[in-house]
Write a protein that binds this DNA or RNA. Sequence first.
DNA 1: CGGCGCTTTGATGGGCCTCAACGTGGGTGG
DNA 2: CCACCCACGTTGAGGCCCATCAAAGCGCCG
Lengths: 228, 228
Amino acid sequence: PAALCGEAGETAIAELAKIVHRTRMPEGRIIYGGHQRSKTFAIIISGVVKLVNGRPDGRQQIVGLQFAADFVGRPFTESLQLYAEAATDLELCTFSGRAFEELLRQYPNLERAMFKAVVKDLDAAREWMFMLGRKSAEEKVASFLAFLSDRMSSPDAAATKAGGKKGLRLPLSRTEIAECLGLRLETVSRQFAVLREQGIVETSGRRFFCVRDMGGLRDCSESSVGSA
Amino acid sequence: PAALCGEAGETAIAELAKIVHRTRMPEGRIIYGGHQRSKTFAIIISGVVKLVNGRPDGRQQIVGLQFAADFVGRPFTESLQLYAEAATDLELCTFSGRAFEELLRQYPNLERAMFKAVVKDLDAAREWMFMLGRKSAEEKVASFLAFLSDRMSSPDAAATKAGGKKGLRLPLSRTEIAECLGLRLETVSRQFAVLREQGIVETSGRRFFCVRDMGGLRDCSESSVGSA
DNA sequence: CGGCGCTTTGATGGGCCTCAACGTGGGTGG
DNA sequence: CCACCCACGTTGAGGCCCATCAAAGCGCCG
């Protein structure tokens, strides 16, 4: 039940169903970006996609993450130094680009749904900008974990490690988390340790974490240092 | 000749012309945001609008700037901690929200033009995110000035101070520039001094600056510290 | 010309980066 | 099934960049 379909209208959905194709993609696959005009559109069934802004000198900034039910693909334009990559193995509903753009033209409701999705992405990007520009390292890591908890708390993605409590599998490595937050991986690791010592989160292995005190986590993510 | 009109189509333009209204706004006026549902849409004739993401604790991050020919307004949704403010005195072409949304529904080309504008904003936001997360203070200030030069080099906005060379009036105070770049105002001031000492820019008074060496400025904005 | 707010400049400290070494998990091949 | 191995993660020490606090300079308004 993708968000896109929720507002598209009955007949549009039926038309979409005709051109949809279920696909899998391994972690690391480039979905679109840079020079190649892949022109495929998709909705994520499961897995996580990262949007990366990279420079020739090696500096990279992850500028967006897409989760289950999110739309992936660039309508109308290409961008040079931006690409989308499978952060985990993916299950996708893909649409042929040509046919999909045709449907967009035919069904205004569908285009409107796309429009709203992009506006939502824009808001998310601006929230993310506040984090990058104004939050401390601890706030960044805490708000990132809170964000992941929000976006990934679906029953199937939830894993049970760390002693029976409901935890999540981290879709990103420490390096990638650092690229999200505008930090170095060592700093991310240290902030994980701080949150662990405060009893706010648990971690197990490289990829599992579990929020023990969501209130405390949210406090850390907006600490407003001097006041309150 | 606003960008929006370029792609909207003849008849749509004619309809738009019927509901348009020319307006002025003083610096500091809130255009939309927070709680109030102003629901006015506008195209900027002259002046600059800043989009601010603010928190109760006083921290602020400017997450977008809009210049002449840009569209201002939030279609479909409101956002809590985001508002738009006139950074300078403005001349606007405003549209009644109700009538404008009606036209959007009637003329798909118009909606498509809006769509593309939002996608462009999204790309700009993601470029900005790279700057916030990965650039040094000097790179931030240099790329900001280069950005302003690009966006404001229209004949009327260009001012001639600093000894006959073509300069620009800064639309933002040092504090506001700092809020754009994720820095403190003192740091912005110091980086201005550095660029001045290198002969790359000149400044005069509080609000005028002039690029003397655009190549040098662009070098500073992507210095790629270790290599090349 | 006087006052105020913005800007500049200086001194100091802290947070995060950098470099480095060690530990660990998870997959592979025997 | 287990031992090996290597990439990833953790932890430590030191230094730099930028934030912070403070005071003086200057533009712009009346």
